[in-house]
């Protein structure tokens, strides 16, 4: 079992606790040295579900137009981190978030950005492909209409271009009115990526996007991620170290310490993989511990 994925975390979220999102006031503009290069500046982020602390005071900057691979063992809060970045934590019962996340210098936890607009800017790809059980076309229509695009031709155009960008157009162009879940798992996942791209986001969050796929589909999705990394900021959670090596420009390793998810080490992929600073990282990369 690949540990707790986003859905099961949301489903099994603790009941009863008060739902709170506590945002600290913005004290100083973060990352003032390189203001253009970081999409997200996370400082002192703590996420808890009732008594369980999933993430404990994490500070991490995520570079623009790069792929940040988030690695670490199961249950160390990697998925919780993704949930914070598009504020899907609002929907987890009993989830309490504190700290500060700046995106384009705006505090997204403090409500400086409308949450639906935030989610339009930040697409999320789930572990298990989840196209709506509707036609392929309708999978695009639904979110696009929600964001005010009603013109049929425009929808058609966006759908075609994103499907082309994900390499799916040739495979599905004759069956756009067929149910999306008749596609193969890999196709479904690429469809989900295309659907997220159709909203012209700045960033894509991917929660182990390949772990439910066969090796060939997995490879196709990886290639897709590589082709997207020039234009989008991508954060990808993965259990697969070699995948992290292949895709990541940056790497963040999380670990479960005293029952709390903590950030062990982060930095450019070459540095983390070739010259890890932390002993834990060394051991983990050698496969000595898991």
């Amino acid at each position: 079992m690949p540990g707790k994925d986003l859905e099961s975390e949301i489903r099994h979220g603790h009941h009863g606790g008060n739902v709170m999102t506590v945002a600290q006031p913005c004290i100083e503009p973060a990352a003032h040295r390189e203001p253009e290069r970081h999409l997200w500046c996370i400082s002192d982020l703590t996420v808890s579900y009732g008594e369980v602390i999933a993430l404990s005071s994490v500070s991490l900057n995520i570079k623009e137009n790069s792929v940040t691979a988030v690695i670490g063992p199961s249950g160390c809060g990697k998925s919780s981190l993704l949930c914070c970045l598009n504020r899907l934590t609002d929907f987890i019962p009993g989830c309490c978030v504190s700290g500060r996340i700046l995106m384009h210098s705006k505090d997204i936890l403090g409500g400086q950005i409308d949450d639906t607009r935030l989610r339009k800017q930040v697409g999320l790809i789930f572990q298990k492909p989840n196209p709506f059980p509707l036609s392929i076309r309708r999978n695009f229509e639904l979110p696009l209409r929600e964001h005010g695009i009603r013109d049929r031709q425009e929808i058609e155009h966006i759908m075609q271009s994103t499907l082309e960008a994900t390499g799916l157009w040739k495979e599905v162009k004759d069956r756009l009115n067929k149910p999306a879940h008749q596609l193969s798992g890999g196709q479904q996942q690429r469809l989900c990526i295309a659907r997220a791209l159709s909203l012209r986001p700045d960033a894509l969050l991917m929660d182990e996007p390949c772990s439910a796929l066969d090796p060939i589909s997995s490879g196709q999705v990886e290639e897709l991620v590589l082709s997207l990394r020039e234009r989008y900021t991508i954060v990808i959670v993965t259990h697969n170290l070699s995948q992290a090596r292949r895709l990541g420009t940056d790497v963040a390793l999380f670990w479960l310490r005293d029952g709390k998810g903590t950030l062990v080490e982060s930095g450019p992929a070459s540095q983390v993989f070739e010259a890890p600073r932390d002993d834990l990282t060394k051991l983990y990369l050698r496969g000595a511990i898991a």
């Binding site: 008060n18 739902v19 709170m20 999102t21 609002d90 929907f91 019962p93 009993g94 409500g111 949450d115």
Partner: peptide, 9 residues
């Protein structure tokens, strides 16, 4: 089911 934070009540 869905629960929202008080901030957005």
């Amino acid at each position: 089911m869905y629960l929202r934070s008080p901030a957005r009540a």
